[in-house]
Design a protein around this nucleic acid. Structure first.
Lengths: 224, 224
DNA sequence: TAGATTGTTAATCGATTAACAATC
DNA sequence: TAGATTGTTAATCGATTAACAATC
């Protein structure tokens, strides 16, 4: 895996999409794929697919394309999931629970190791086979167990304090569903902010741009 | 609102972030803001903020900045939420329920109008004050009620069929949480695909790039 | 008035696409 | 061998940033 200079975020964001398609094609019993076919998955060009991969190494063969099994392995290694990652969910409300139950963790080598909440009525019950602990045990747990990624689904008001603690305890990644901005040292902890309302709002923008919805653009007759 | 040519997706994706900060500052009792301050919110430059807004009109004043109250109104109008939008959730499992309960719909002028599921044990119970109907009533409902946005949280296997029906019935926007690719006519129905695993994977990539995690880059000594 | 800050034009930067020799 | 398709260099395109006159 070469990787000379910083790979662009756009490229990184396409990797999981390639991976999913590679896995689908493997399941379909295919054994190789061309950059042109992969391009369709991300709505782009074969050039771009080849550029993306060439950031990391040479995985294809001329006249043949990419061997799916090797490419799958390569992309998993590039993303980093050739190695298992330990996940903890902080906040087991509706959303935390939905995420943990909805996502195919094991498929991508993630292991849910722990769950924390503050609500006494939840402590002791379990979520995806993991017993929910009280947040007061968080520091102690992190001292003795390595957690790579925390899913942060606590109320906004608690977000900053919890995130600070996680980073302080050496958790290197936070998947942040609270709408709070976490100001952590990016050399220590990477944060991915998910704001679903932002996404719904941009969908709404596009919806209002549909040809049959063009309203309130002042018509020439309005100007007179 | 002018808008001469197509506004870039990057710009559109920044609008909700501006809006949230504008609302925060309004709540803090401020009455105006500069492009430089707004730039911090999206981690960019004042130039870009001004470029973004200038796609739509002139909302600022030299030497003063942007009047928050007017800007709030302008951005809401640009996004399109000056007008209420009717939302229906299709699939009231864990995730559908979490989304509906977690997001501040009313704050952005969204109204949850209907909910559908296929599980008989859920029909008749309610979610955020809305009674869950059986999907068999979907067509009939859409004939008599205008729905602008459907949240699609059905199992992957059901996604294509349901989406086809929604588009056929004239639903102009689908917020798609199934990991199925929906091939709909984009002139008729806009789709926003949310793949949370993609996001978790890109977080993992970044996590593995952290300085203290740089592994398996062959060291010079490995080469000898 | 002087200082601040906009809106816009021009310059820069980076990402995408095209082209093509290399080669399976 | 001929056809297909890579990896890479160069060209293009678009988005971001800089600069500055206009003006509140």
């Amino acid at each position: 895996m070469k990787q000379f200079r910083k790979v662009s975020d756009n490229t990184v964001n396409r990797l999981p999409k390639y991976l999913r398609h590679i896995q689908e094609e493997l399941n379909n019993g295919k054994d190789h794929i061309s950059s042109a076919m992969l391009a369709e998955v991300v709505g782009s060009t074969s050039s771009q697919v080849r550029q993306d991969f060439s950031n990391f190494g040479n995985y294809g063969s001329q006249g043949y394309g990419y061997h799916l099994k090797s490419l799958d392995e390569a992309v998993r290694t590039i993303i980093g999931i050739h190695v298992p990652h330990h996940v903890a969910v902080i906040g087991t409300g509706c959303l935390g629970r939905a995420l943990v139950e909805h996502l195919e963790f094991q498929k991508y080598n993630f292991q849910l190791c722990a769950a924390f909440d503050i609500d006494p009525s939840l402590i002791g019950s379990s979520i995806n086979g993991v017993t929910i602990r009280h947040v007061s045990e968080l520091s102690e747990y992190l001292e003795t167990n390595e957690i790579h990624i925390c899913i942060l689904t606590v109320p906004k008001s608690a977000a900053k304090v919890v995130a600070q603690k996680l980073s302080g305890m050496g958790v290197p990644a936070i998947w942040n569903f609270t709408n709070e901005t976490l100001n952590l040292n990016p050399q220590k902890t990477v944060v991915q902010n998910i704001n679903l309302m932002d996404s719904l709002l941009s969908l709404t923008y596009h919806l209002e741009q549909l040809p049959n919805r063009q309203r309130d653009l002042p018509l020439p007759s309005d100007v007179e």
